[in-house]
Nucleic acid binder design. Structure first.
Lengths: 209, 209
DNA sequence: TAATTATTGAGAATGATTTAACAAAACAGC
DNA sequence: GCTGTTTTGTTAAATCATTCTCAATAATTA
């Protein structure tokens, strides 16, 4: 039974399903039951069926799920076939690392441009992505539809930069700075990656295992 | 009333409290009530008090919490004053970026060494951290107490490398590869950072806002 | 010093998520 | 085609997390 409001907990599990199904596909597995998928992923079969049932009926009784089909369905739900456009702001070490190694296209994203203040990187091309000066940003956004901005800039300028971009109509942010970005506007989406938070939870678990 | 088993949800909020309190400290704020802290963080005062009460009584009725004191308490719970030792395996773009920009010491970690297969980085020193050849890893681990290994290596060698390290007694992993590392051993802790998962949840929310 | 206000920590109530149970449907072997 | 087995999607139960409420207590003010 399709649901109206999907909880965040479910949404955050979808990419993991997608990852596991991609792996199964590559291993040539054709069908899988919720039970075996659960064993591989270390979650209950019940939860898997409950999660999928939020979006439709993808399995067949007595058979299970067709791996390739299910992967396509979840990919579709996640929007990997949507051709999103993305730009990066800040081409330091981390920005460079992402441009060179992160498989944006596998998630349905095209990286159209990068921007930086430093004259040593402006004018270069990193893995087919041209790096422009910050002064060209406003004009670029007027000319191009941009779905997501990756923020790999220093913390000090993060909220100001975000505010500026929101005013220019940007609706999605992938934020790597160590502050909690937010906006009053309800249709602006932030996804924050806090390296330090992650390391601190590990620190806690090591101290309290 | 101190609790025995702290839920994961609570633990994952602790670093955010710590971050916010650090910010308040820097702004010179001396005391704060659960109510105002909640307003700043966009969570209920109730949840804050409930969370803190898992670990003890840090506030005072009619007054609130002393910011500096509370920060120290939460830092202590997270183990930032524990002097953890850490090594990195894989000094590509991402490894480089972390070594140069990530403030390990702020989370209580000292980076003792890095390891890589590439002869172009072996022998170099990145931000005071010496890079050794992989062949020296086993010997290094025999000589040094290492709490956490950062894995910034290609996916293809991730699980094998992790297994090898587990056999050598490593109990903590900060994993940046795109696979879900795991171990049968219950006292081995993994903290996985999946960039792709994060971007895909953003993709979902953009498509379904 | 007494009255008023602010605020915590704890327990109860509510809400959300996860797990269990099961009828219905499809498959597999004979 | 019949019989037993597998496995789904859904409903119900159990568990877990969050929010509400309030007595207790400290600070502040008059």
């Amino acid at each position: 039974m399709k649901k109206e409001n999907i909880s965040d907990a479910v949404i955050r599990r979808l990419p993991r399903y997608y990852r596991q199904l991609t792996d199964l596909c590559n291993r040539g597995v054709v069908r899988i039951s919720s039970h075996s998928l659960g064993q591989e992923m270390n979650i209950t079969a019940s939860q898997i069926r409950q999660d999928f049932s939020c979006f439709g009926e993808f399995g067949q009784q007595g058979y299970g799920y067709n791996v390739e089909e299910l992967k396509a369905e979840i990919g579709h739900i996640l929007g990997v076939d949507n051709d999103h456009h993305l730009i990066m702001i800040g081409v330091g070490n981390l920005g460079h690392a992402l441009l060179q190694n992160f498989p944006f296209s596998q998630s349905g994203f095209t990286v159209d441009a990068a921007f930086d203040v430093s004259l040593t990187v402006v004018g270069t091309v990193v893995n087919h992505v041209p790096v422009y000066a910050m002064s060209e940003l406003d004009h670029f956004l007027q000319e191009h539809a941009v779905d997501v901005v990756v923020l790999t800039i220093p913390q000090s300028v993060a909220q100001d930069t975000a505010n500026h971009l929101i005013n220019l109509g940007v609706k999605g942010f992938w934020n790597f700075t160590n502050i909690e970005l937010s906006s009053q506007l309800p249709d602006v989406q932030f996804e924050n990656i806090h390296f330090a938070d992650s390391l601190l939870t590990l620190s806690y678990r090591i101290a309290n295992r």
